[in-house]
Amino acid sequence: MTILDPSNPTAYNHPARPTLNEVDTGALGAALLALTKEVWVLTDRMMVMEEVLAQRGIDISAQIDAHQPDPDLQSRLNARGAKLVAGVLDALSGVARD
């Protein structure tokens, strides 16, 4: 591995950090598919939602941009986000899920 030297502090900006290797390729593919599925579920839901609202004469895109989640929604977003991440990372790392 690369040993960085503080006498050249800018070397810390973009260190050559080892992460995954060829052994991880299969798990990486599984994680990618898990992520793609989640993205598709959300894309499908968004398209359906916008279509339903448009049929009722409501354009919500500007309101979505400006909307600030209240604590309850933020809490639910946080829980969903962590669950999404855990699904991907657990697939990538091979961590067994309950």
Binding site: I64, D65, A66, H67, Q68, P69, L77, N78, G81, A82, K83, L84, V85, A86, G87, V88, L89, D90, S93, V95, R97
Partner: peptide, 23 residues
């Protein structure tokens, strides 16, 4: 006061940390 894309993007960094607990 962030817009949805930026807010969700920054929040994702938080989700990444919390969702990595099993890892």
């Amino acid at each position: 006061v962030l817009h949805q894309r930026g807010r969700a993007g920054v929040d994702f960094v938080v989700h990444l940390a919390r969702g990595a607990s099993g890892l």
